[in-house]
Simulated scan of single mutants.
Amino acid sequence: MCTCAFVQSLSWISVGAAPQNWTIEFDSVTNVLGAVLPKIENETLAWNNDARYCVTPGILWGEAHWSKMFDLALQLTSSQAKEIFTQFIPSVNRTAHHNRPLYQLWRVVRRQPEELLVKDITCGDGINWILHFATTKLGVSVTPGFELKFTSILFHADRLNPVEVGGEQWPDVVKYFNGMIHAMESNQTSLERLLDVLHLMPIHFVYDGNAKAYFQVIGNHFPWLSAQYRSANLEGPPWFDNYDKSAVVVV
């Protein structure tokens, strides 16, 4: 029997004579900055924003790295856990470079009427997909009282206008992302970085890697960005046709 604890990653704990732990984390293959900032050569933007699962023995980075609270998400038999490791995770990790899933830090929402314009894809989504697979394909019930929550980096916009690569607005896109890169340069002082970031506000452009599309952001007002700790229904990867779209957790 295996138990699964949720801590923004999943920690698997085998129950038996010799208990063992593993951690499954879904994240950018580089790092967050590497996923949200392109490399720019002339007027070409090159992205390295693949997101994949990584399995490591033990509790990755130790318990102190994570939240003070560990939630028990579900219990699996060894054969059910094997299905996740051999069937579901490889189906995501086998995707080619620059193919979905791609790490998407920004979650863009229209205020009125409220509508999701760009969906974020971060570590919480990867865990969501595993729990969804376990409940819908393996018939495993989540632990009573368990609620999936994770953090999204959110900004609002009145609308998004598509921007054509190489089109009339393209030089403005390149200039904007160059400004983002400059603001994050390591040789900058904290004050210089802050001033550079403020100069980029309100948010002018956003790239949705999973849609492979650039957008001009219209109507991003102060506060320009916010961190939202939110509840989520269990959902599979939105582009996997053979998975049910969502499963409401009933506790």
Rank of each mutant, 00 (worst) to 15 (best):
T3G: 04
C4E: 02
A5N: 10
F6S: 14
V7R: 00
Q8E: 06
Q8T: 06
P19I: 06
N21P: 03
W22A: 07
T23G: 04
T23C: 07
E25R: 09
D27Y: 10
S28C: 08
S28D: 02
V29G: 00
T30R: 06
P38F: 05
K39D: 09
I40P: 00
E41S: 12
L45I: 13
L45Y: 06
A46R: 02
A46C: 01
A46Q: 03
D50I: 07
R52W: 06
Y53N: 10
G58P: 01
M69C: 13
F70Q: 05
A73S: 14
L74W: 00
L74M: 12
Q75M: 07
T77C: 09
Q80F: 07
I89T: 01
P90S: 13
V92F: 11
V92Q: 08
R94K: 15
R94A: 13
T95L: 14
A96N: 15
Q104H: 08
W106I: 00
R107Q: 12
V109D: 03
R111K: 14
E114K: 05
L116W: 01
L117M: 09
V118A: 00
K119Y: 01
D120W: 03
T122F: 01
C123V: 01
G124L: 04
N128E: 02
W129H: 04
W129I: 02
W129R: 00
H132C: 13
H132L: 09
F133Y: 11
T135M: 15
T135I: 15
V140H: 00
S141E: 14
V142G: 02
F146I: 09
F146Y: 11
F146T: 03
L148W: 01
L148A: 03
L154M: 14
F155V: 11
F155R: 11
H156P: 10
H156S: 11
D158E: 15
D158Y: 09
D158K: 12
R159K: 14
L160K: 00
N161C: 14
N161T: 08
E168S: 09
K175H: 10
G179W: 02
M180W: 10
M180R: 10
H182M: 14
A183R: 00
M184G: 01
E185C: 04
E185V: 03
E185P: 02
E185A: 05
S186A: 15
S186Q: 10
S190W: 07
S190D: 12
S190E: 13
L194T: 08
L198V: 08
H199S: 15
L200C: 13
M201L: 15
I203R: 09
F205W: 05
V206E: 05
G209D: 05
G209Y: 01
N210L: 02
A211M: 07
A211V: 06
A211R: 13
Q216E: 08
P223S: 12
Y229W: 10
A232S: 15
P237Q: 08
W239M: 05
F240R: 04
D244K: 13
V250M: 14
V250N: 06
V251T: 12
V251N: 14
V251Y: 14
